[in-house]
Design a protein around this nucleic acid. Structure first.
Length: 716
DNA sequence: ATCACAATACTTTTT
DNA sequence: GTATTGTGAT
């Protein structure tokens, strides 16, 4: 292969390794995706493997598409041997399930339930079990069920040692029944069912083993038990398996990902060929040193010496803003400055945060400045009400036993059908041993149905008539015409009123449907369920990108801002008492740092608003791990002992009464052990403390808490 | 009986 | 700031 000279010796060794079980342990920015793509091309061009025998699995659609693009350009026009199969775990096995639907408890028209639909089923199950949704949180139950499914634990095997787990076990059982009754699968089923299928029908497993003797896996450290099991099944005893992994970038533990699968792979394949990629092609040495300092604090971890030939580069800038609004303002100002001086383009910047909710303050800063930005994810397009409404109609038309969609569609827009009418409809369906859809269609034709009152009949019959019209044309007209007809029939535009934004979303979805006209409703609905908007990054806009640290994995930017480096935010407070979760927060910070090519700018806010209340924050513990010689900025030595504040607030005796009078006054000269002398600009009494703004001669304006910052009034 | 609006509780990360 | 539940008007 002529392009092999593009690679360094380590990369070349990996790409040209003899077929067999191969694990490439790679650091960030070491060209993982590149190696994976070259391997794909190498198999086809040098080893003459028919492309159709290669199955490449990724976690995101973005990664799959990127690989596809790179591979195509690498292979040129030589695709005579077919096309490699490239896709996410979920979409790949969803496809296989449709092919093998005869052996499944669902038909090949099954729909995929997203988290909102799943939650609906959990609520329904809880109601049937006479559980108060206030006492047993549906979200918790669902999370617990999902965890079990990722670990391949069936309802019967689910351990129920507490009241909560017993409830969960029963809900789990009922939830599975409801899914099947709706002819639906959830995300976890897309992996679980293939496992069941393969273990029950060995011949089928062998068919797929023969079809794809060559496996490629990206981000192997993110596999969960179900995914690992599937890989092992497909791999067989003597596999050609090429996996790339970076355990330090494992950030999906909450989704069942287990980086220990890397170790399991070693145990399961004793002849595993493990290769290392340590040279980094992305970042400056300063950034790598900082990142290593952060990740080396992790216990039980093999040290990786990351190195680059890019030189030292700029120090890492740390800034403490007053609150989240000022944090956003600082980001925007910094970007404007660096763009104006010509040091960078708007598209060179990324702003990363722990939670989607944090994007708001940043967005507002951009909006105030009148500057454009790109937002990844956040308010998910497919999660919007208007979008879900339309999808509910389409799902109902495609799969009439989908009761979750029926309930949603029949209620929106409001047409005089409420709880009582629906209850009557379900009851009538039960009695007639038919589906609610059958009853609706009958009513639509003017047939009398016992159990349906005169009052309920009119709106139900009207809806039934509309439905029968849609079912009749669904196979004859193109997808976008079907959508137009539905929207028109239910007067959806009128329902939205003058909300142009929401109508625009509906039209955008119609636009996506238009692209799927050829492929049809099944493919469209699957796409809608499995493709998240995390993947829909508009490439052509030259503007800063706003995204979560999770969404940032696999990407790189010249200049990276990470905001919200406060205790409770990053690390997130939900990870506080679980060491494994805390370790993951650290890896998340590591991932963020290593996205940067040239510069990293870290921000934290002294005061932060969450849940409506504004409170003071402590700087993130991760800031302490950055070597002093790599950083510059105004936070150095600022970290306050977190416990000092806690002790006072939680003990009864030592409770400090709220100061009734400010000790400091504007204009006073004060002295601070670290910051030196300064003048008080402003003071403010805050529930049990005094907040002082001081302009220090040496270090500029600082916000301090009087009781904690040993601030002294200077004698005149 | 249904629907709009107000009050209330809750808030990680994503296929 | 948002999802869910409760209440009062139609």
């Amino acid at each position: 292969m002529d392009r092999l000279s593009d690679l360094n010796p380590q990369q070349r060794e990996a790409v040209t390794a003899a077929p067999g079980p191969i694990l490439v342990l790679a650091g960030p920015g070491s060209g993982k995706t590149r190696v994976l793509t070259y391997r794909l091309a190498y198999l086809i061009q040098e080893l003459k493997v028919p492309a159709a025998e290669i199955l490449a699995l990724t976690f995101t659609n973005k990664a799959a598409r990127e690989m596809e693009g790179r591979a195509l350009s690498l292979l040129g026009g030589s695709r005579a041997t077919g096309v490699p199969r490239l896709g996410t775990f979920h979409s790949t096995f969803a496809r296989i399930l449709r092919i093998e639907a005869d052996r499944l408890p669902v038909t090949r028209d099954f729909v995929i339930f997203d988290d909102v639909d799943q939650l609906e089923l959990v609520r329904q199950s809880l109601k049937e079990l006479n559980q108060d949704p206030k006492q047993v949180q549906p979200r918790r139950v669902l999370a617990s069920i999902s965890r079990a499914k990722n670990e391949m634990i069936e309802p019967q095997a689910f351990a129920s040692d507490t009241y909560f787990t017993e409830i969960t076990r029963r809900v789990y059982e009922r939830y599975q029944q409801l899914l099947l009754a709706n002819n639906a699968l959830d995300f976890d089923d897309l992996l679980l069912l293939p496992i069941q299928l393969f273990s029950e029908h060995e011949a089928t497993l062998h068919t797929y083993r023969r079809r794809y003797p060559h496996l490629l896996v990206d981000e192997f450290q993110d596999t969960n038990t179900a995914q690992y099991t599937l890989l092992r099944m497909l791999a067989g005893a003597k596999p050609d398996l090429f996996a790339v992994a970076d355990p330090d970038q494992s950030i999906y533990r909450w989704r069942g990902a287990d980086y220990r699968n890397v170790k399991r792979l070693r145990d399961d394949f004793p002849d595993l060929n493990t290769l290392l990629l340590e040279q980094n092609y992305r970042s400056t040495q300063t950034i790598l040193d900082a990142a290593m300092a952060v990740i080396d604090r992790q216990p039980d971890r093999q040290h990786k010496q990351l190195f680059t030939e890019r030189g030292t580069g700029d120090p890492i800038l740390i800034h403490e803003a007053y609150d989240q609004d000022e944090e956003g303002q600082f980001v925007v100002e910094k970007i404007s400055m660096l763009t104006l001086t010509g040091e960078a383009e708007p598209g060179d910047f990324a702003v990363m945060y722990r939670t989607n909710a944090q994007s708001r303050a940043i967005e507002e800063a951009f909006l105030r400045a009148g500057l454009p930005y790109r937002l990844v994810g956040a308010q998910r397009f497919y999660g919007r009400k208007e979008v879900k409404d339309l999808i509910a109609y389409l799902r109902l038309i495609h799969n009439p036993v989908d009761q979750v969609s029926l309930e949603r569609a029949i209620r929106t827009p409001p047409r005089g059908i409420g709880d009582k009418t629906l209850a009557a409809l379900w009851a009538a369906a039960d009695q007639a041993e038919a589906t609610p859809i059958d009853i609706l269609l009958m009513l639509g034709r003017g047939v009398e149905v016992t159990g349906i009152s005169a009052r309920a009949r009119t709106p139900l019959a009207q809806f039934g008539a509309l439905l029968s019209g849609w079912l009749e044309i669904k196979d004859r007209v193109l997808l976008d015409s079907l959508i137009d007809r539905v929207l028109e029939d239910v007067e959806y535009r009128g329902y939205l009123g003058s909300d142009e934004d929401r109508w625009a979303n509906v039209m955008e979805l119609r636009g996506v449907a238009q692209e799927f006209s050829e492929l049809g409703l099944v493919e469209f609905l699957q796409q809608v369920a499995l493709v998240s908007d995390q993947d829909t990054l508009t490439e052509n806009l030259n503007a800063p990108t706003l995204l979560t640290l999770h969404a940032a994995k696999g990407l790189e930017f010249p200049i990276v801002f990470i905001v919200g480096l406060d205790e409770g935010e990053l690390p997130h407070y939900r990870s506080q008492d679980d060491p494994e979760a805390m370790a993951e927060e650290r890896r998340l910070f590591y991932v963020g740092l290593t996205r940067a090519q040239d510069r990293v700018i870290l921000l934290r806010a002294f005061r932060r608003r969450s849940r409506g209340v504004s409170s003071l924050t402590d700087p993130s513990r991760f800031l302490d791990d950055l070597p002093a010689d790599l950083i510059e900025g105004d936070l150095i030595g600022m970290r306050t002992p977190a416990q000092a504040g806690y002790d006072r607030e939680t003990s009864w005796q030592g409770r400090v009464p709220a100061p009734t009078e400010a000790r400091f006054q504007a204009g006073m000269r004060v002295i601070h052990p670290q910051f030196g002398e300064g003048i008080v600009l402003e003071t403010q009494l805050e529930y049990d403390d005094e907040e002082v703004t001081v302009n220090f001669e040496e270090v500029g304006v600082k916000h301090l808490v009087a009781s904690m910052a040993s601030l002294e009034i200077e004698d005149p």
